[in-house]
Amino acid sequence: MSHYAIVVNADLCTGCMSCEVSCKQENGVALGQYWNKVLRYTQGTFPDTKQFWLPTMCQQCEDAPCVNVCPTGASYRNEDNIVLVNTEKCIGCRYCMMACPYGVRSWNEEIKAVQKCTLCNHLTSVGEDPACVKNCASKCRYYGDLDDPNSDASKALAAADPETIHHMKDVGNHPVSAYILTSRIGSWEWD
């Protein structure tokens, strides 16, 4: 089974927001809403401080709580095992937003449905990279099937020191997306 996801090398992220902007532009994400958001974190106290950026998005959980709680099957996995939302089936109960451990789903007021990162499925299904990956100025985002050792995402993880590879806190949902962050740049606080 494939596990498509985005890997982010937070060591290289400069916080330019290109991914955030290109995601909104590519997917027509409404004003004030995000499918991908870059957060800034500062650690330590002056003068011994560290600062880094953390791009956040759907973590493509292996046992996705959003899919499990959706009463209509609007949140589902496609044939490539990617977690998606069929807004035509969404009844707007927002139960998936409560169930998402990372709060990475957003409510589209206009269509009255929940939306989230689709890994730019319309692009990736025809062999392209997601918009955020294509437009990343510091080339710190990698997309691909983590079960395929030849994918960009797998190569990025293979090249990294295993101790620098992190995932979001796992409460039984098994997040697939991964982050690379060395202690020199910042301390991982989310596991």
């Binding site: 499918w35 957060l39 974190y41 451990p101 709060g103 789903r105 979001m168 806190k169 409460v171 989310w190």
Partner: peptide
């Protein structure tokens, strides 16, 4: 009393957002 494990986008912590802190 309901607080998400983490909440990056749905109810963002404004203090952590780039534009709010820069």
């Amino acid at each position: 009393a309901g607080t998400s494990l983490l909440s990056f986008i749905a109810t963002p912590d404004a203090a952590n957002h780039f534009f709010a802190t820069i």
